[in-house]
Design a protein around this nucleic acid. Structure first.
Lengths: 223, 223
DNA sequence: TTGACCGATGACCGGCGGTCATTTAACTCC
DNA sequence: GGAGTTAAATGACCGCCGGTCATCGGTCAA
């Protein structure tokens, strides 16, 4: 019986090597992600995360001191991955139009619903029950990624200054979290928005984000 | 002793008339608001809300079925009040410049931190544990206020169509919730952002919102 | 004055995040 | 390969909090 379980395990029962600990950490993050994708932050129980990896609840807390820390770590991963993806898109080509850039940004967020949903929780929920050190580590990483992206934006859109590029990134961040909340939807809200006269409150995330970024860029001087 | 308490009471010990019930409801909303202003949604306990009004915890649940319902009702009030305030500003004058309008909107949110903080929680937290009926009632009211504001916006900025006016409102909503999250800050985040090199992540809510709206309007055709 | 209604009460419950003494897998050394 | 050592994993346990409900008693009509 123990053998059957061990056969399924990628990581040894006891993770003693740093490499195994890292793998276990990943298992937990993957479990948290899967559960979050199916429900919501509030509905994901630490016991469920543990069960999904075949571990005991207490074990989860050996890897992450709090539930918020677990999800902030997950956001950290997703954010880094997304910036890499976006920077990959921005690396090619010469000068872009406003619409091209807006499409690229909005497109890079396609299929990243988990990331944007978590991003919308970052300041209001995740940074509530976390150590200063962890919050700082997270923000350091954001800073680095932002710097790279800012440089690439200026290469694609020559009329941008370092100042306006930074502004643009902040606006986009704000729009992404804001629009995700409007588009995203608790099940209850989804039901309400189905009603015909609620149409003005329905938001298509990608379309709306593309339009908003295009408009912003035009306002900043793009043609 | 009971007399001393009763002397403080605006509402009779037992609220039997509808008028008294409404007053008690207000007391609870005010208490929730005061506590939320001092801390955060997660830190406000229903027992505290009760204690602050001199009532028992169970009584709060006679007026609001869940914690989320209480705060959604509070948001409902604040939202209605803010729309009224904004519409008041927009009622005067003829044609405005982009910057004037941006100033008006951002200015109307000055001192409304409680409102914007709650707004940022609306979809991710408050609409989670609430009946469909309550969520719908809330959204109905948003729709009505939005309609009025849309009309006033078109009067102040003649280049706006009903379509672009609606777009603008959605963008502003997204920006407000997004920027509030970036500017607002859990205590932990506030400490981290104090570090000098974190400057690019610091956000001045009013300034940033004014700039963003101005930029958007320019992108929509304002001069 | 009295009886009935109904708002207020607070002890109670279930569930969840988080802890810690104990267990035991995994590695080391002889 | 057996004994000893380390520390990862365990799960019973705790405190807290949102939410419930049998009971109490204030209020008012008759």
């Amino acid at each position: 019986m123990a053998g059957a379980l061990a056969a399924k395990r990628v990581v040894p029962l006891r993770a003693r090597r740093d490499e195994d600990k890292e793998a276990r950490r990943r298992e937990l993050l993957d479990a948290a992600r899967a559960l979050f994708e199916a429900t919501s932050f509030a509905e994901v129980k630490m016991a469920d995360v543990a069960a999904r990896t075949g571990l005991a609840k207490g074990t989860v807390f050996l890897y992450f001191p709090t539930k918020e820390a677990l999800f902030l770590a997950l956001l950290d991963d997703l954010l880094t991955a997304w910036f890499a993806k976006l920077n990959g898109c921005l690396a090619e080509g010469g000068t872009w139009t406003a619409h091209q850039l807006a499409r690229a940004v909005a497109g890079s967020l396609e299929g990243e619903e988990t990331f944007t949903r978590l991003l919308a929780l970052a300041q209001t929920v995740l940074e509530q029950n976390v150590t200063v050190a962890q919050a700082q580590a997270f923000k350091e990483r954001v800073l680095v990624s932002m710097g790279t992206t800012s440089a690439l934006l200026q290469a694609r859109l020559p009329f941008l200054t370092p100042e306006t590029a930074g502004q643009l990134i902040r606006y986009v961040h704000a729009l992404v979290t804001g629009l995700r909340q409007m588009a995203d939807i608790a099940p209850v809200a989804r039901e309400v928005l189905t009603l015909p006269h609620m149409a003005p409150l329905r938001v298509d995330f990608t379309a709306e984000l593309t339009a908003a970024i295009t408009t912003l860029l035009r306002g900043l001087g793009a043609r």
